[in-house]
């Protein structure tokens, strides 16, 4: 099985690649994890991962600057329906618009906007940085066997903006940080997490393993 982790000049690709390798090992999958900026690799891959850290607009222009990548993503993910995992800003890019430093068009695969977090409690720091628990809001196979809720495992977050999809059924999980924060979105063969599964120890590796086992219907 081949997993393409898209390199568009953003993010800590080394740890994402290592986490996918480890998660595949854990479930006995022989995975070929490739960090790549070649659209052909994305077309050929069984699973596609879009990481991303930094500002929305920078990531969007970084992705657009890789010749043929947006087209390859549309072909593989939207037409062929291969499993897709967006991480952090890679998840935010699924939105219609990002409202960080002005409005920037996203991929618009999931309608909605990426907006600034505004916690009710002014003592809460921005960025939302650290370990938080997760509330599943809609069932999804990737959460199978993972304890969530107030007594569940924790996920590692670092972000100041979050994604508000128009259709609430596309929010798969939230967390609480002085407001309800979108932690995971998805539809069909697409999922995306605001937190970093590659940095979330047990929860992260279990989630990635489930993603690799998942056969979207």
């Amino acid at each position: 099985m081949s997993i393409a982790i898209i390199d568009y000049g953003s993010g800590n690709l080394c740890s994402a690649a290592k986490a996918f390798e480890r998660a595949a090992d854990m479930i006995g999958l022989n995975a070929d994890v490739k960090v790549t900026s070649d659209p052909d690799d994305v077309i050929k891959a069984h699973h596609v991962v879009l990481p991303g850290v930094g500002a929305f607009a920078d990531c969007r222009s970084g992705l657009a600057a890789v010749d043929g990548m947006t087209e390859a993503l549309s072909e593989t993910v939207l037409k062929q329906g291969k499993p897709f995992f967006g991480i952090c800003v890679g998840m935010q890019l699924l939105a219609s618009h990002g409202l960080e430093h002005g409005s920037t068009d996203g991929l618009d695969w999931i309608s909605g906007d990426v907006v600034a977090m505004e916690p009710q409690d002014s003592s809460l720091k921005i960025p939302h940085m650290g370990w938080n628990t997760i509330t599943q809001t809609n069932e999804h196979p990737v959460w199978e066997g993972i304890p969530t809720g107030a007594d569940g495992l924790h996920a590692y977050f670092v972000h100041s903006f979050h994604f508000l999809p128009q259709d609430p059924s596309q929010i798969l999980a939230t967390c609480d940080y002085g407001q309800t924060v979108t932690a995971m979105v998805g539809r069909d063969n697409i999922i995306g997490t605001q937190f970093h599964p590659e940095k979330s120890q047990k929860l992260g590796l279990a989630l990635i393993s489930n993603f690799l086992k998942w056969i979207p219907s």
Binding site: H128, G130, W131, N132, T133, H154, D176, Y177
Partner: peptide
């Protein structure tokens, strides 16, 4: 809820 961190 967000937790405090211990960093060695």
């Amino acid at each position: 809820m967000l937790k405090a961190r211990v960093i060695p």
